[in-house]
Design a protein around this nucleic acid. Sequence first.
DNA 1: GGGATCATGCAAATCGTTTTGCGGGTGATT
DNA 2: AATCACCCGCAAAACGATTTGCATGATCCC
Lengths: 341, 341
Amino acid sequence: MSQDPDRPSIASVAAAAGVSPTTVSHALSGKRAVSADTRERILKAIEEQNYRPNMVARSLRSRKTHSVALLLVDIANPYYPAVARAVHDVLAIEGYVSFIGNTDGDAETERRLLEEMAARGVDGVVMQPMALSAVEVREIVGPAMPLVIIGNETGEMPADWVGTDDTGGLTEAVAHLARKGVRDFGFIDGPPETVTESLRLAGFRAAGFRAAVAAAGLEVRERWIEYGPFARDGGAAAAARLLDRADRPRAVLCANDLMAIGALEAARQAGLRVPDDIAIVGFDDIETAALVTPRLTTVVNPASAVGGACARTILWRVENGPDAPYRRTLLPTRLVVRESA
Amino acid sequence: MSQDPDRPSIASVAAAAGVSPTTVSHALSGKRAVSADTRERILKAIEEQNYRPNMVARSLRSRKTHSVALLLVDIANPYYPAVARAVHDVLAIEGYVSFIGNTDGDAETERRLLEEMAARGVDGVVMQPMALSAVEVREIVGPAMPLVIIGNETGEMPADWVGTDDTGGLTEAVAHLARKGVRDFGFIDGPPETVTESLRLAGFRAAGFRAAVAAAGLEVRERWIEYGPFARDGGAAAAARLLDRADRPRAVLCANDLMAIGALEAARQAGLRVPDDIAIVGFDDIETAALVTPRLTTVVNPASAVGGACARTILWRVENGPDAPYRRTLLPTRLVVRESA
DNA sequence: GGGATCATGCAAATCGTTTTGCGGGTGATT
DNA sequence: AATCACCCGCAAAACGATTTGCATGATCCC
């Protein structure tokens, strides 16, 4: 519509109604009283011209765009769409819209998108940073920008934050298997090199895994922790490395479902029966998890809840200004037992 | 950043560089010459203040937002994320960003989102209308708005258009099965009531199915065409209705993979072997299709190509103005044979 | 040396809103 | 009759960029 050169403006409806633009504005916003019949004429003119206020002009004046940037790794990967949908739904209620950006976990792209969005004047940013640290993100968007970070808490975190209790779900998973007598646990984590320094130490979810195994009173074997890209073949390759050895774990947990599904394939390839020879547990509970054979036992990562919490936090922050203390939200995860473990 | 009251402006860098805002603008845009050392000073000031031009102000003046609206049914459904990703990728190259909206196939939501986006001054709209006709969509956004419609061509279409040759892929599927001696084909289509009048007649993909069966020289049996919501349980229910009868088809094609996966479950429930007792074919080739058991034979709906074509068409239209003739793109589909048929 | 051309910079108008200060009218209170 | 308080409307100044017209000085050609 920026296109349309003769789009009606507040001036044109003012002229048609025989009043000033000021009066039209007041009639619409209600910030000052307008007599009943003046309002009448104005509304008629608006109707006739099919006038809709120009949001760009309004944003310039009010310094609010009623938009937020949603920066995820890759909207085309499972799991993220559910987050995005929930964010949208909550924001839409308040009349906000969102821009989506795909970072691919690349530092340069993360930086570029953040600057682009800041230049566009978004009212807030919801981001899952992979390559940049929270501190760097904060530096780029400036101290006043509402910012919600999705992910694990690693190092300093000058922003609001929404995370999931990965350790909780993984602990459930380990306990479930321990009850069945499993004592040897392996783990397939995301790629360590794509990740920021502090994150690297914790691993993507490896820290939660270690805690879970320790909580069960069992020993963590570092040689049973493998790494790979967050995709099916990454999981398959990592699982193959794990399964090819003389001493292999009796169960392997994975940092996400895609990798777990890859592991399922690797197990089949190796002639291993799941869950009898090797138990496999995923993470996220994407829709596919319930459809593969054997159906995947996995830790539920509540995507909708995460998205909803992010959106509510952004709105809250916009409302309350930059000086309110940071708000932290930790969402629970839980195990759903199906066939693979 | 609308937030930040002391964000640097073109005036502040002009002051720091000892020139006028005009000169800064020209130095950045290159629309007029600026001497080398003036430019030098300006760039230094920009660097020091970390200035980024305010896109909102720029948009107001230039009447271009470098943004497009992407209105899909539901980003959380499989298939759509791949479209969105491709749209983003192509647009990003030209410095465009996109808003995403979920219509849920609801007329009122479609209308509301279109108006909202128009008010925000997007440079174009890419939409898959379900409830509104193309003509209605065009009316809402106005004659000058670049508009790309995704979907089947039904009735008048005053917009650019990107579709897929559904009939082609379905014809391949029928031919593939006919070669194996299958003669009795059923079809599970989307819900007829959610859809616009003209679309209803054609069905979501039922028209393609009929054409495909006819092309194989076989008879179309209307009683073997069932309808249901575009989801797994919708497909399962429809398939159950189809499979429960004394005379049932030997193969059933589905309007999308989700429904086909539901049909797989219904067949298992009914104690039928796939593909020996009943062959099942999906449509879309979402990622899950290759992972279910039996692996789903399906028609590939090229999501990335669709998204890419939409984005390129919008850019082309923005470039060439509203008077260039409508551009139509029909993308091929093809059968991928796996285990279910 | 006079006129033309070019390079360089500034002031001011513009995009479409919102917001603030001001004032004329009306009715009620003292 | 003077004061006060509202109500209602307008003019004008923002918001931060782009663009146009004009002014100055230097260069150049004949």
